[in-house]
Design a protein around this nucleic acid. Structure first.
Lengths: 249, 249
DNA sequence: CAGTGGTCTAGACCACATG
DNA sequence: ATGTGGTCTAGACCACTGG
């Protein structure tokens, strides 16, 4: 063995790209040009090693980058697979959720995970313009689009305003129907906020993600036609699955 | 040398935590409990190796996890530093960028990375309502807030509309001044879109993130007071650094 | 200059899935 | 049983920073 473990060919000094980066780019372009199609298995790490004349660690560095970008998924004992291109739902802030998604031809299913009474947390109380500790109706739901869990949703509403919430909601799990039965025919969006975050245990479980996986969260505040705030809603989406659209002016 | 390179103590089978994970958790708790304060330098990788009795690769696996979470930042040749708890900038869609951030008391610096002429890509042409291939002015900038790269920004504008772009922009790197000098006193936001994504090479380099790090991207379209679309703009933010606020109705 | 993180070689053992 | 990815050891050279 020579004293150096380095490549005996020290590579062109002009080519200053780290090997892992050029491997990454090569594989990425093969994925994006469909030389590697959706759900295809990549060559094994060992095969990639000999193809690119590097060790496994260098190949893995490139695969890690692809995986973080969501282009591939590694399955232990099986291989590394090309991910189907992420489905991205367009959420237009001017319309109701169901209209946003249904118009794109997806089947939407809503599963109510819980309906409960809680005391208002400080942040929610402030949004709704009520006192901290006021009784709220809290519902937790998961939206399933095309058979895949897509969206975890919490809503909080002043309980006093909706005495018959449970009875009416039970019928077809429609919040807007609850509103209608309580004399709220029209309501509108006051504000929407969009931010990033990392999946909590709860979010990860329901959305079938890893704990700490990147997310997009939306928060929105609705009021009735008299300007009374009636609902604060939060949603959590997998990072790559949604685009929010805000038409303005 | 023994035929095995493995640790001679094969570790308790009960403790099934991978070493890198327990190192990660140890360091994370030291950061979160302020044993390691903001801007502190962590012990060097070599020191951590001896502290935890592992090789550098194992330490680096743990540091990578911390870095992806945004808890620490590695500086080549210098060390690994604890990040100040993430600052989240509120971006209110009704106002200009500089107003959004400056009102929160941050210093904002803008660095123009390039100003060029390009042919309109199909997607940008569609947004701007022009033909594909039309000449555009493209600018690429990085916003530096409180000394840290915070926001990578691209803008595309029809070149024909701004014959003196370079000359005017050079003066104080102000796009709105370019607009003013070309007779556009007022312009307004037509639409904003917010979505998630993963850092490209370019984004990672400028925002000092890993390739594939989670991002929030915003796209916005501006038009002049006659409704002519004059600018398509895209921004990329580290996931945890921004909250978009959209007042509505 | 010495020290740091970034990258890489050349092996190894393990848990897991069944190409 | 074989092959896969997940993890690890024990070194090495490089570019960069100014601890």
């Amino acid at each position: 063995m020579s004293p150096s473990h380095q490549n005996p060919i020290p590579a062109q000094k002009e080519n200053k790209l780290p090997p892992w980066l050029s491997i990454y780019r090569t594989l990425k372009s093969e994925i994006l040009t469909d030389e590697l199609a959706d759900d295809d298995r990549l060559p094994s790490e060992k095969q990639l090693c000999s193809r690119f004349s590097v060790t496994r660690m260098t190949v893995r560095r490139a695969l890690d980058a692809l995986q973080r970008e969501g282009l591939v998924t590694a399955r232990k004992g099986s291989g590394v697979y090309v991910n189907a291109k992420p489905t991205c739902y367009e959420i237009n802030s001017g319309r109701r959720f169901i209209e946003n998604v249904a118009t794109h031809g997806y089947s939407v299913e809503t599963k109510t995970l819980s309906v409960s009474r809680v005391s208002a947390r400080a942040d929610i109380a402030e949004k709704l313009g009520i006192k901290r500790g006021t009784r709220l109706v809290a519902i937790k739901r998961i939206r399933i689009i095309g058979g895949k869990p897509a969206f975890l949703n919490f809503k909080w509403m002043p309980a006093k305003r909706f005495p018959n919430f449970n009875k009416i909601y039970k019928i077809n799990q429609s919040v807007s129907q609850v509103y209608g039965e309580h004399g709220i025919e029209e309501y509108h969006r006051v504000e929407t906020r969009v931010s990033g975050g990392r999946a909590t245990d709860d979010e990860a479980r329901h959305l079938q993600l890893e704990v700490g996986a990147p997310l997009i969260r939306s928060q929105s505040l609705n009021s009735d036609s008299d300007g009374n705030r009636i609902e604060f809603s939060q949603g959590s989406w997998p990072l790559d699955s949604v685009e929010f659209i805000f038409p303005q002016d």
